[in-house]
Design a protein around this nucleic acid. Structure first.
Lengths: 254, 254
DNA sequence: CCCTTCTGCGTATGGCATACGCTGTTATGC
DNA sequence: GCATAACAGCGTATGCCATACGCAGAAGGG
């Protein structure tokens, strides 16, 4: 029953323990020639330059002038490396809301900060997520988001749900933007031409009798002009915050 | 200039053209021994049984009693097959809202329908999405979603944005649920034990001085009990629909 | 009846993650 | 000062994967 309850309860991958500053270098053996941060930095560099698909163990090793298998002395698997890349890729959270900021302004700032990171590093969206956040910086983002909701009438559970809702929205919007960007790079067209081209394609494909509502959208020219992506982002963000506002108002009333 | 402007404007992958019923079988040559739908069905079957990672061209071919390379006579690439798998995996849309349904009930039904599909087929979430929907059933979902907003004061563009917002939310929530499910399968723990275990892990990791807000969430026991995932889904859905409601109210007032 | 056009598929290429075991290094205990 | 245990770097090998290429044979059109 108390078999593996040394002191750490659940099992944490070694490289993640490293990220928390636990784990000291063993006393014996030769001095390591690399380091986990150096490997993660190299991997992030590859992803920034050539996308997540270019991140292979051999490519990262080449970047460091080492052999492929040498990396496995530092990270247990590629998945572990990816987890550390996400932590490093997000970077430090934007910090707690400045004093005097109300919850809505705070969360708006918080959402835009994630938005900005994801626009800079589309590859973060392509990392297959395997579990809830357990790395230091990820939890830093969560902490700062929660602080925005300090003083509101929401329960702790509702605060958490709100954050989940928001971060999910930001990721979604960024995913859409990245699809447009990658599509335009693949076809060679300008990004501003992608939506109109999509609209034209749909207009050819759909039968107005079977898709009347879609037809009306096309006729209204919604897909013909390319909107400012930031406006689209603001639209959804305001919708969500309006919804949160409605809940806060209700909670405060009772 | 008018080089490849035969009649079709933008280029559509052959297998996608097939999905729209365009494209007739060539008059010459041997009769095909397989068919695109048979291949897609087999691939969907593999994904249902063993997950998306198990879907390889050779595995699908084996399932059909054919050689790997035979598939490439029907689909241009694995990505094309994946696009068709998504179309088939979603299945037909739930249909237009029943007469007399208001927009909110209609969208709620629509969101739950996607929710149900994604819960049944987690692998849909792992298909890397490469562009906006262009397959028939996908557009059917979009059409039925738009119809829910018929008669509201929203602009066509706002209707589209609302749908995007909703479908993004549903996918997000399903992603979270799939992570819990896969995590519990990997560790052997019961799904209901995953969140409490996560809570305990965080409690050990975080320094209360650096993560006070998170600490408060933990202390409130938010992560200790496992909530009904459907309640979590309903929370976010209601928040978003409240936000849409606020916008509709404002549009109607002016 | 032949020739074009198609299907099925064997083979080969170049990528990938990673298990395993060897060689050489380092600090500790004697 | 030396043996030894614990470690670092990494060469090799295994078994996946998508897919380019080209050949053999089938089927219909002229």
């Amino acid at each position: 029953m108390a078999a593996k309850t040394d002191d750490s309860g659940p099992v944490l991958p070694p490289a993640i323990e490293y990220a928390w500053g636990l784990r000291d270098r063993p006393p014996k053996g030769p001095r390591p020639g690399m380091s986990v941060p150096a490997i993660v930095d190299a991997a992030v560099g590859v992803a920034d330059a050539d996308g997540l698909a270019a991140v292979s163990m051999s490519r990262v090793a080449k970047e460091l002038g080492a052999a492929t298998m040498a990396l496995y002395r530092y990270v247990g698997s590629k998945d572990e490396l990816l987890a550390l890349m996400v932590d490093a890729g997000y970077g430090p959270s934007p910090g707690p809301p400045p004093p005097g900021t109300d919850w809505r302004a705070g969360l708006t700032r918080w959402a835009w900060a994630e938005h900005d990171v994801l626009r800079q590093r589309f590859w973060l969206l392509h990392v297959p997520i395997t579990g809830p956040p357990i790395t230091p910086q990820q939890l830093g983002w969560m902490e700062d988001g929660l602080r925005c909701l300090d003083g509101t009438a929401l329960t702790e559970g509702e605060k958490m749900s709100t954050l989940l809702l928001l971060t999910g929205y930001v990721r979604n919007e960024a995913t859409l933007a990245s699809q447009i960007a990658e599509g335009s790079r693949a076809t060679g067209a300008k990004p501003s031409e992608m939506m109109p081209a999509y609209g034209r394609l749909l207009a050819q494909l759909i039968d107005p009798a079977r898709f009347p509502a879609l037809q009306r959208v096309l006729a209204a020219g919604v897909l013909s002009q390319d909107d400012d992506p930031d406006d689209e982002f603001t639209f959804g963000l305001d919708r969500i915050l309006d919804g949160v506002d409605a809940l806060i108002g209700r909670r405060a009333a009772t």
